[in-house]
Design a protein around this nucleic acid. Sequence first.
DNA 1: CTGAAAGCGCTTACAG
DNA 2: CTGAAAGCGCTTACAG
Lengths: 329, 329
Amino acid sequence: MTPKIRISDVAAIAGVSTATVSRALSTPERVGKDTREKVLKAVRATGYRINAAARDLRQRRAGSILILAPNLSNTFFSRIFAAIQEEASAAGLIVQISDSRIGREKLATLGHDGRADGIILLDGGLDPELVNGWRLPVIQLCEWNAAYDAPVLTVDNSAAAGLAVEHLAGLGHRNLLHIEGPEGNVLATTRRDGFLKAVGDAGIDSAVFEGDFTMESGARAAHRWAALDRRPTGVFCASDECAIGFISEAIRLGFDVPGDVSVVGFDDIEFADRFNPSLTTIHQPREAIGRTGAQYLIGMLSDDGTPTAPDYSIAAHLVTRVSTGPAPQ
Amino acid sequence: MTPKIRISDVAAIAGVSTATVSRALSTPERVGKDTREKVLKAVRATGYRINAAARDLRQRRAGSILILAPNLSNTFFSRIFAAIQEEASAAGLIVQISDSRIGREKLATLGHDGRADGIILLDGGLDPELVNGWRLPVIQLCEWNAAYDAPVLTVDNSAAAGLAVEHLAGLGHRNLLHIEGPEGNVLATTRRDGFLKAVGDAGIDSAVFEGDFTMESGARAAHRWAALDRRPTGVFCASDECAIGFISEAIRLGFDVPGDVSVVGFDDIEFADRFNPSLTTIHQPREAIGRTGAQYLIGMLSDDGTPTAPDYSIAAHLVTRVSTGPAPQ
DNA sequence: CTGAAAGCGCTTACAG
DNA sequence: CTGAAAGCGCTTACAG
């Protein structure tokens, strides 16, 4: 590695002080024309780049935001991360990512170690005391926890579950199954409660099977469903992955989708449209969630961390595809 | 936000110097027992946490590694990122992510701004001059560019393409189609050349359609394939997404998979196993690639950046599922 | 074992 | 318009 060039090297070559080099680079209008040119020439000659870490320390900022998500390998997050990164980059901020389940001590440190200016949290399952102890602006995306002292940006999960039920009821289904998300997860709870409220309102029979958002849990639920005497003809899954697991396993068991059973997912992941049969699902605007969330956090950074805006809800809608159809006779 | 606590605050409360506080925290064995306890008490009372940004500046390191990938919303990367993050976290390093197509100037800065100790590069399409100008250890993962002066960790893409051809030939297919990746991409080129070599060796008819790894490109290729007079009965796609797009569109056009056409993908993404029909594909061990790559880069950091190890190849293998079967008569 | 001082590489009031 | 000096929050030879 060639040795790094510092501002003092540039200053020496240009024959000026480091203060002048600094100004020539950050506020060129406050430097004389000749001096500025001498400095820029020295910068070009050396290939000097500002050491952002040193600048940020001096300016008492970190120059970056941190994304915390419960499982980085979950493909649901990809588009959200991409949108956040774009917004951050436009604002001159670096994006850090970490799994939010890295352990209490490491997690506690993240909010105090001077390496991030703010946190985007996609995990509602952390200890509120820990989260509220962070001395940084925090925004919650998708998942949330009412005990966190931080604004939330998410879709109305309960209402969205209602859309799924209405859709199935409109197709004549009178007996619905919900495969829920993991116990204790706020999305799981909200979607299930929305389902139960909607079936109650519509006077439709219903059942709930446990699940955990994964394809495997959907496949397991398919076996349990197949073994029932009186099988529900419509299934609302708490996630697209769960729905894909359910459908693929139901087909392997010899059932037809949507001939024998209609299935609705949640999320509208990339593959929903290309799955066979293509998946009727609730569209979550992940790009918009990431983008808006990042913009909001960035706003909080310049506004001194005061979360002025209220919780913000983004519209979710139903996308009708092939996995749902009229109830069988 | 409550004001941040500095090491000098702790020192004042404990009645010692900041040097002693620093030692009590980083090398406690070099501090007297009583002193150490006084310091730790003050740390607990204040909730002090070391400012990692200041520590790192003093120690002339960044304490983080940077992942650069051409498209963060590509779900292929998720598991790789997760593995990298785990390894980095174990080594006390933060993980930064950025899209590698953020623009030449920003990209150039990343290798010089003191915010990263090393770079994991998943993009073989950047300007070599720019990449080689970075004053940081770099490792290439999955994609590579021979003009980059950095070690590579990837699978043998050409040999893997050969496995796909052998598999189809073994099922009796005598006319194969390859849907390639984007022009100029090293993975696309290597997989295509591996395909062409294998069909040549086996004396099998072949054709190549253009594509770009996406589901849309697979769907477009399906239309083009369907319009042929003498349709190839076996298709090797440069990615799973492309294969999924091809199959879903072929089915919509009324064909049966694998009855009318067998399809092989590349990557073995999570959905390959649950797609309908489940997808025969080349398994890329993404977890291992991420983990090994991170370990290697971390090794380079402590070894003063000298890339001692040679390029490293990870084994890929064929996973046989339902999307391939005997050639139709 | 402990402290005073220097320094990581910058920026920014403060003078002039 | 420019420079000398202080300081961001730490760590680490150097003394004692």
